[in-house]
Amino acid sequence: MRAASIKDVATHAGVAVGTVSNVLNYPDRVAEKTRQRVLNSINELGFIRNDVARQLRAGHSRTIGLIVLDIGNPFFTSISRAAEDAASESGNAVVLGNSGHDANRERHYIDLFEEQRVQGVLISPVSDITERLSALTARGTKVVLVDSPSSEGDFSSVSVDDVHGGYTATKHLLDIGRRKIAFVAGPQHFHQVSDRLAGARNAVAEFPDATLEILQGNDLTVLAGREVGDTLVMRQQGELPDGLFCANDLLALGMIQSLTMLHTLRIPEDVALVGYDDIDFAASAVVPLTSISQPTAMIGRTAIELLAEQLDNPDAKPRSVVFKPELVVRASTTEAQSHQR
Results as ranks from 00 to 15, higher is better:
D195C: 12
L136W: 02
Q116V: 11
R330N: 05
Q340N: 14
R235T: 00
S148R: 14
Q337V: 15
R266N: 05
D28H: 11
A252M: 12
D70T: 08
M1T: 15
E239K: 01
L96D: 04
H108Y: 14
C246Y: 05
E305T: 09
L45Y: 11
L145K: 12
D154T: 13
D278C: 01
D195G: 11
R105C: 08
E114R: 13
T11W: 10
P125M: 04
G229E: 00
A205M: 04
T77S: 07
G225S: 06
T296V: 01
V322G: 07
I79N: 02
Q340G: 11
S258Y: 01
Y167R: 11
I110Y: 05
G72S: 11
Q55F: 13
N248I: 11
S332V: 09
V94H: 03
E213T: 08
G225Y: 03
L262P: 01
M1V: 15
M1Y: 12
Q188F: 08
T137G: 01
I267Q: 01
A138H: 03
V204M: 04
L265G: 00
D161T: 10
Q119K: 12
T334H: 12
Q116K: 14
R2H: 13
R201M: 10
A4L: 12
L69G: 09
V287L: 02
E89A: 00
K324Q: 11
V160M: 09
